[in-house]
Amino acid sequence: MNTSIAREVHFLQRPEGRVSYTVEGSGPLVVAVPGMGDLRSSYRELVGPLVHAGYRVAVTDLRAHGDSDTTFREFGDIATGRDIIALIDELGGPAVILGNSMGAAAAAWAAAERPDAVAGLALYGPLLRDPAMSAFAVASIHGMYRVLFAAPWGASMWSGYYRSTLNKGRQAPWLGEHVAAIKTNMKEPGRLSSFRRLTLQLTHSVVEPRLPEVHAPILAFVGELDPDYKDPVAEAAWIASIGATTVLVGESGHYPHAARPDITVPQTVDFLARLRDGSEQGANAVTAAWAARA
């Protein structure tokens, strides 16, 4: 199932299977990574403007999502971060990484792990740390995931939650089409069980301690209605405390890059332009090497 607005799907070979991606344009490399339970087509508002602005844009699926293989057994931020690094190396880095939700966490991990490969980060609804909760609460949530995301109702449960809860506030005009594609994709053999495995393996506790090692410039968009944060304003302030430029996006839930392109697209383009000309605070030798790539 081709879940991208781009026609040609490429595959990155990894030890447990292949990760799907598309690539368009020419210029410095930008790699976009969606969040859990999403498809690479969630970046449709950004791809065109970035290609037009002179960037080579690769948009990847997560493991077992979209057109990626369902043979994977390892999931989470580190596994995804390693896939990002492998894709950057495959395409010729360094790259600026765009990341949503857990894709943002994986991008941050990749920037800490391979600072030579990452020139900057633009993050949308980033989940860079686990919420504070007891071991009993975590076990209860995992038990709920096992039930909610089981066949035959799991795909409907996730797509409904994605549409009604995670997309509070303004919604993309193509949200209905996108949710239908997510549901159809998740009903393909092996995808729902892989998604459930991801929900049980996922923890951002592996990312938070690595954040001091991230030296690439960061732009982060936080939706003021994002239900994944107990307090979006406080979370935006915390993300700013690690050195990021943060933007609190009004009338937006967990997907500000899709719901509020009027805010996120021009600011992302401007951020990349500042990286490219060296005027962005925190720009460094890796940023200069990225900007020099044609």
Rank of each mutant, 00 (worst) to 15 (best):
Ser134Thr: 06
Glu188Leu: 09
Ile242Gln: 15
Ser4Gln: 04
Glu113Phe: 09
Glu213Leu: 06
Arg7Ser: 15
Leu200Asn: 08
Thr203Arg: 04
Asp38His: 14
Tyr55Pro: 09
Ala111Tyr: 01
Ile239Val: 06
Trp238Lys: 09
Gln267Met: 12
Arg7Cys: 10
Arg18Tyr: 03
Ala285Met: 10
Glu16His: 11
Leu272Thr: 00
Asp83Cys: 13
Leu98Pro: 02
Val47Phe: 12
Ala240Arg: 07
Pro49Asn: 14
Ala132His: 05
Gly48Ala: 07
Leu12Cys: 08
Arg18Cys: 04
Trp153Gln: 12
Asp116Met: 06
Phe75His: 00
Arg260Met: 06
Asp77Phe: 13
Arg197Asn: 14
Ala119Met: 06
Asp89Leu: 13
His52Ser: 13
Gly120Arg: 02
Val247Ser: 03
Trp109Pro: 01
Asp231Pro: 04
Gly243Met: 03
Gly54Asp: 03
Ala53Cys: 11
Arg170Ser: 11
Ser20Lys: 02
Leu98Tyr: 00
Trp153Tyr: 08
Arg40Glu: 12
Ala292Arg: 12
Gly120Trp: 00
Arg197Pro: 09
Gly160Phe: 15
Pro189Glu: 10
Tyr124Val: 14
Trp290Phe: 09
Ala172His: 14
Ala139Trp: 08
Ser279Tyr: 04
Val47Glu: 15
Ala289Glu: 13
Trp109Val: 01
Leu272Phe: 08
Thr268His: 11
His142Pro: 12
Ser20Met: 09
Ala107Lys: 00
Gly81Phe: 01
Phe136Ser: 14
Gly99Tyr: 00
Asn100Gly: 09
Ala137Thr: 13
Phe271Arg: 04
Pro115His: 08
Leu272Gly: 04
Pro131Trp: 07
Ala108His: 04
Leu219Ser: 10
Leu192Met: 05
